[in-house]
């Protein structure tokens, strides 16, 4: 806390840089929630053929 020359610490730079925070927030959300979620929905497999066979027979 003395008078010695002090550079602004890295974390404070992050806290003060609102445009970086904007980038951070949007990216994490887009990757973790949107993209991951949509990929999983797109990759669902169809109902197994054996199960369909057992109910519908040869139809």
């Amino acid at each position: 806390m003395e008078e010695k020359e002090r550079k602004t610490p890295f974390l404070q730079l992050v806290l003060d840089d609102f445009m970086f925070l904007l980038f951070l927030g949007v990216t994490i959300y887009a990757v973790s929630y949107l993209i991951w979620g949509l990929i999983e929905l797109a990759w669902l497999s169809p109902i197994p053929a054996e199960l369909k066979q057992s109910l519908l027979g040869g139809k």
């Binding site: 669902l44 497999s45 169809p46 109902i47 197994p48 369909k52 109910l55 519908l56």
Partner: peptide
């Protein structure tokens, strides 16, 4: 577990299940 289906397919399976 979740499978992709269509209303038509799922209805056919349910009706066959009911019949059985």
């Amino acid at each position: 577990t979740t499978y992709r289906t269509t209303p038509q397919e799922f209805n056919a399976l349910t009706q066959a299940f009911i019949e059985k």
